[in-house]
């Protein structure tokens, strides 16, 4: 049951350099792989309600690149992530690099593995940083964005008449 698994992801730091993210799904590994790597499907889950993906490029082959860009509905602020695929084993494993474009020195090596048992697929992402400071900065980024979401909601609450962003306000 979907509802039973809501909020069940386990996120932990491991050693000084890694973050491990684990979550199980009631779906076959092949379908999990498809939803993880198909742009039209990625757009439905990767961004946030108020920060949808405006770019979702996936060149799913070894040496191929990927790039996701979110844009905040209210501020128009865009944030981009990109990387390259190092290993691809459909339905089983993807090794890829990832960097936040505002902080390219903080590149990580991400290893996604899928393990299916009795129709339940456990997805594990190990994010390997090059320094502890970068690892900790990524953990901290969640709090910054979380706070920003809270502030955005608060701003909308206190200024109900604020106009939606227009194209004229977009960055060149």
């Amino acid at each position: 049951m979907l509802a039973n698994r809501l909020g069940s992801a386990v996120i932990a730091s491991r050693g000084d350099l890694e973050i491990v993210i684990e979550r199980s799904f009631d779906a076959p590994a092949a379908l999990v792989f498809e939803a993880w790597t198909t742009p039209s499907l990625i757009r439905r889950w990767w961004g946030y309600e108020s920060q949808p993906l405006v770019v979702c490029d996936v060149d799913l082959r070894v040496g191929g690149g990927w790039r996701y860009v979110t844009r905040d509905d209210v501020t128009g602020l865009e944030m981009g992530w990109r990387g390259k695929y190092r290993e691809i084993e459909p339905g089983v494993r993807i090794v890829s690099t990832e960097c936040f474009e505002d902080h390219p020195a903080g590149e990580t090596l991400n290893t996604l593995t899928l393990a299916e048992v009795d129709g339940v697929t456990t997805l594990t992402v190990v994010v390997l940083h090059t320094t502890r400071a970068n690892r900790d900065a990524q953990l901290a980024s969640g709090m910054e964005r979380g706070l920003q979401h809270g502030l955005d909601r608060f701003e909308r609450l206190i200024t109900p008449a604020s106009p939606p962003p227009t194209n004229a306000e977009e960055r060149p």
Binding site: R5, R23, V32, R44, Q138, A140, S141, G142, R145
Partner: peptide, 23 residues
Amino acid sequence: WVSAFEAEWNDRLDRFDGVLADL
């Protein structure tokens, strides 16, 4: 500080779960 990052990934993977259920 750590639990905010966890909440962010939980939200994302809950939406991912919803996409899988749809499919």
